[in-house]
Design a protein around this nucleic acid. Structure first.
Lengths: 351, 351
DNA sequence: ATCGTTACCGGGAACGATTGCGTAAATAAA
DNA sequence: TTTATTTACGCAATCGTTCCCGGTAACGAT
């Protein structure tokens, strides 16, 4: 079952040269005569020689590989980011290794262990919902592993970051709900520990405040597992629906929550937007085909991947330690569709 | 930017032992005294030693890593398969490296090159739509790389394969359309070279034949790029809609084609299922939330991943070359929803 | 006293590639 | 002719690990 590859030794032996000469010939060193070079190059091509990257990684302590850690590749947002990352990475001669944490802290640690032990030259990561302890990341960072955070960032670690203006995204969406005549808003959020949750929630609350509406602490429910488990979303949603003041619109603060919410409302035969309005963060390209077409806040995912990769490569290829870091903030896009088209006349009591 | 790891040498030096002794102590060799073992083990734990997998891969010519090649991770079917693969792989101490071909032959080759050069111990692959030349795969296979095909398999290469009963899936779906009163069926297919296209199309045509309906050669359109480009699907769809006998139902033979088709029909304001019925292969978990809820043929993707991985591990860990290969065929599931609920009364002329 | 075991440990060669250094031959400069 | 310089190549160390050989004690049996 082993699978023998051609090595530099085979070439050396066949040509009666030393491995050093072959190596140098292949790297086009000035110390090697034209004839010898041609000889080696031709023979290498003939027997389809490719340098062994494992040996190279061992020697050079670099792998021209970057690691990606996301919670779930099935999530459109993340798969779009990954496509962005790959596009830049490939153009720069880098390969990528993708790992999913599935929102589990332990899986995330295992993945990180795997990636670093395989000598990835750098890391692009959006942390899992469960992750509260960043010390392991901190440690890798301090030991010199170049890291770029995107989406769910870690404030404590000083490095490049790529995010969207989550505050504004949520603010605008909330304003849109209010402008549409909805009054009793509730929010369905990811784990409290996540940067995106905090930022988005702040935008939501600021919008309510700017309109002089008392948001109340109870009108937000969190999903610890980021909606990985539908029952968790159901519990949160039930909590919201059971509020003393019945909500007339929901703001979902993550992709999985948005679609999960719609699924549950349908199950409960609660009409959207008739009984309740719904808007949420989502990058699924199916949202416009849903019943009803979903109003969403969309992130420039592909671009985020591109930017993150460029920043990472900059970090990797920098000669001396980088100390100046930047946080790129991109804009979200608000796509207004059916699910927030208020049908009932505004509730007088709430005005 | 370098990132120094603890090696066996550090331990040896610190403890005044040789690297051989340390290595043996760590592997719990009988030749090492209990005291020394404890000494080494304790110290290794203390300084958080982890063997360098790169060095191990170089030495052992194996990496406990399996490579996955799919056309696109954003595709629900593939991401579900990947989850199945990971679940088994992790439980057996293997890691996975995911690569996407994005339906491009050259990308597929590059990925394969990357994976094998990183010494993956085996490969699980569903080939890209573009791939017509399997010689490179054949070569890897002959050189001893364990391969398991799933979904889009390669008949010419003799190894384990995991598929669904595509013939029956398409047959049943077609029968369902006919039973619902549709008469003028058309099919939207992937590239002709794909195994799944051939099998599904055979099922479709067999159903028509069994009902005494002349399918006609022109009532199938192919999408070379597997629907990666929407315009391609549009051209194909337009071709079908322009048929002399206007179709009243569409069978889409791949995930991307199914949703792409719905998107285009909506754009064209063609009502589903009012003007035309639609059923297709899809593993997207959003299909029931679509407008209309989509009737689909669903594949047991997770299970396929699990089986493929078990077969691959069997291949990898087998002492002697395996010569007996199996093709596991799983069942599809037919989920009937709105999109194939015929509304108009059957067209008399067509009966 | 000598031999054979057993228990324990170290030296050094791999794995595939790069690279600093040494050096022979060929050429140029003196 | 002698010395200096260039050209072109090989040796050996290195990366981290394993493992085939050794080797050296200690001990019991002869």
């Amino acid at each position: 079952m082993k699978f023998e590859a051609v090595t530099i030794k085979d070439i050396a032996k066949a040509l009666g040269l030393s491995t050093s000469t072959v190596s140098r010939a292949l790297r086009d060193s000035y110390e090697i005569s034209q004839e010898t070079k041609k000889l080696v190059l031709d023979y290498a091509a003939k027997i389809n020689y490719h340098p062994n990257p494992i040996a190279l990684s061992l020697k050079e302590r670099r792998s021209r590989t970057i690691g990606i850690v996301v919670s779930e590749i099935a999530n459109s947002f993340f798969s779009q980011v990954i496509n962005g990352i790959e596009s830049i990475a490939y153009n720069n001669g880098y390969n990528v290794i993708i790992a999913q944490s599935r929102e589990s802290f332990s899986r995330e640690m295992l993945n990180l262990q795997f990636l670093t032990s395989r000598s990835v030259d750098g890391l692009i990561i959006s942390v899992s919902t469960e992750t509260q302890d960043f010390s392991f990341l901190q440690e890798f960072h301090e030991r010199g592993l170049p890291i770029v955070f995107f989406d769910r960032i870690v404030d404590q670690i000083d490095t490049h970051k790529v995010i969207v203006d989550n505050y504004k995204g949520a603010y605008d969406a909330t304003m849109h709900l209010l402008d549409s005549g909805y009054r009793h808003l509730v929010a369905l959020a990811n784990s409290e520990s996540l940067s995106i949750t905090r930022e988005r929630l702040a935008g939501y609350q600021a919008a309510l405040k700017d309109r002089g509406i008392d948001s109340g602490g109870e009108r937000v429910r969190y999903c610890k597992h980021g909606g990985m488990i539908l029952s968790e979303v159901e519990d949160a949603l039930n909590g919201l629906l059971d509020e003393p003041v019945k909500p007339d619109a929901i703001l979902a603060l993550a992709d999985k929550l948005t679609t999960g919410c719609l699924r549950l409302l349908k199950q409960k035969k609660i009409d959207v937007p008739g009984d309740i309005g719904l808007i949420g963060f989502s990058n699924t390209d199916l949202t416009e085909l849903l019943e009803p077409p979903l109003s969403v806040i969309r992130q420039p995912a592909f671009e985020m991947g591109e930017i993150a990769t460029n920043l990472l490569l900059q970090l990797i290829e920098s000669k001396r330690p980088v100390t100046e870091f930047e946080t790129r903030v991109l804009s979200t896009e608000l796509l207004i569709r059916q699910s927030t088209r208020r049908i009932k006349s505004p509730d007088i009591v709430s005005l």
